[in-house]
Design a protein around this nucleic acid. Structure first.
Lengths: 210, 210
DNA sequence: TTAATAATCACCCAAACTTCGGTATAATTC
DNA sequence: GAATTATACCGAAGTTTGGGTGATTATTAA
């Protein structure tokens, strides 16, 4: 069964009704063809070499392996496969985990006919389909926390720490003594309640202080 | 001049023609009103307390202070002001700098009537207007590099390092001896050509190894 | 305008942790 | 079988951290 000119799509979704519905919608388009529809990642991954999908529509909550782990594995086997998460969750942590795992789009299960197909079109065009809320969540994730407890100087020094600089390098770059750099860093540690550079970096990234 | 129910918009753009054009488009909407249009950030910032904009349309390339620095300053003065970058550049570094500075949207100067207004609407709705390419750039920025020189174990350990863990903590978490953790870390350093935890974290983040 | 507070700078010592340079053996993977 | 990966140990040198002390310069509040 060769399907020239049509993009090969695999659906991984445990709810049979939704799976069938997506199947019909995707197949209704001249540009896409469902080459496999599975209720779990394990089956889908086992069939990957046969299905050779260009695009995967992936649920997050699945029996057995979840969609995030599944995304990791599929991307690991073929990094040119584009994965769109299709989920009820717009919970912050899950979104970022899915993106880190390799997803290129994130839409909700409430997506209708048009939304689903335009997400597929958007992926083919080299874009990244997302709902408004997800887009905002992703953008906000870049923003620096305006309520940082650190002073301007401390923030500068934390920035240099995060770039991997030593006490000596920091002092040279800021034209202050090594001891002064040390004092600032001690104050940073006390404010962030950490006690090493790496911990400070972890906290700074998590709290978006730099 | 009070403008109830209309969102207050400030335009910062040095090309007078474009500035006038945006002015007309924004004012043509019942939902928005331009309360200030400036050719540089300095003037716009000086007038902030009078203009009190809810939304700023900001050019990047400007005489004097550039749009990224301007974004930082405006957000610093009032973090509820939403800033949309309007620019010819879709260059990767500039995009991320603008986002880090506090921008919530990123559209190109080629934006037409509809695109400009729908970007404004999208911001009001709490979204983050972006072109396809920008959205993809942002999403790809989360993806882990599949060409990492590190082994699986080394990647795990680098992950723990980035979480601020010490040698001892790492060894305990992975049920290996402290000396083994040390060996792995030495190998990581040699592969990444760094020689401290913080430098390794910096490189890992930059090269998207974790 | 003074008083208080915050920010920035600087130094000392001891303890703890990290890094460098080796060596070496199972267990896997190719 | 050869190469890679994961495991483990030792000691010396270097860096970082914790606990103090103290001074000068903004900045803010009374």
């Amino acid at each position: 069964m060769s399907l020239p000119f049509k993009k090969r799509v695999v659906i991984i979704e445990d709810d049979q009704e939704i799976r069938e519905s997506f199947n019909l919608i995707v197949n209704s388009s001249q540009r896409f063809a469902v080459v496999g529809a599975y209720g779990n990642c394990e089956d889908a991954i086992a069939a990957l070499n046969r299905d050779k999908p260009e695009i995967v529509l992936m649920d997050i909550e699945l029996p057995g392996m979840n969609g995030i782990k599944g995304t990791q594995i599929i991307r690991d086997k073929n990094s040119s496969t584009e994965i769109i998460m299709v989920t009820v969750y717009e919970d912050s942590d899950l979104v970022f985990e899915a993106l880190k795992a390799g997803a290129s789009g994130y839409i909700t299960k409430s997506a209708n006919y048009t939304e689903l197909l335009s997400a597929l079109e958007e992926i083919v065009r080299g874009g990244a389909p997302m709902s408004s809320r997800i887009a905002r969540m992703v953008i906000d994730n870049y923003h620096i926390n305006p309520n940082s407890p650190l002073t301007k100087r401390e923030t500068t020094i934390l920035q240099l720490i995060s770039e991997g600089k030593t006490y000596t390098q920091i002092s040279e770059e800021l034209f202050i003594s090594k001891e002064t750099a040390k004092t600032h860093i001690k104050n940073i540690y006390s404010k962030l309640q950490v006690n090493s550079k790496s911990e400070a970096i972890a906290k700074a990234n998590h709290d978006k202080l730099i």
